[in-house]
Design a protein around this nucleic acid. Structure first.
Length: 115
DNA sequence: GAAATGACTTTCA
DNA sequence: CTGAAAGCCATTT
């Protein structure tokens, strides 16, 4: 129960209306390359903690990942994300270009148009 | 202590 | 972009 706290901290820092990828959270949590640990951690957390916006954490493709055990929870996550104001694409994927959480961009400044 | 698991990421084609 | 394979290493039993 140590690396988890780091992950929880990062996930809790994710602002509403945005999402972060496991890899990014892992990096921010000082755990580069341990993306799996992030997901693994959240998997353990959701069962014992509900103060963590795990639904704001998605995979690199901007999609919702899930284990065959959680089944159905993916639907819940999508619902929560939509509640945050996030929209999904044609294949249940999110526009990371816009919804990806950027801790550096303290607000809405240098949003150098991507497209 | 060792083996098995795992909500992923990145690289090559 | 998508698809496939390898790497990653803490948690769990």
């Amino acid at each position: 129960m140590s690396v988890y706290e780091q992950i929880y901290a990062i996930v809790c820092q994710i602002p509403p209306g945005k999402v972060a990828t496991y890899g990014q959270v892992a990096t921010l949590a000082n755990l580069p390359g341990r993306a799996r640990l992030v997901g693994y951690a959240l998997y353990r957390v959701d069962s014992m903690a509900d103060d963590i916006p795990w639904h704001r954490v998605v995979n690199a493709k901007g999609e919702i990942s899930h284990s065959p055990q959680r089944r159905g929870t993916d639907y819940l996550q999508r619902s929560l994300l939509e509640a945050e104001g996030i929209e999904f694409g044609d294949r249940d994927n999110i526009n990371l270009r816009q919804y990806l959480w950027q801790p550096l961009a303290s607000g809405d400044f240098g949003e150098a148009g991507g497209t």
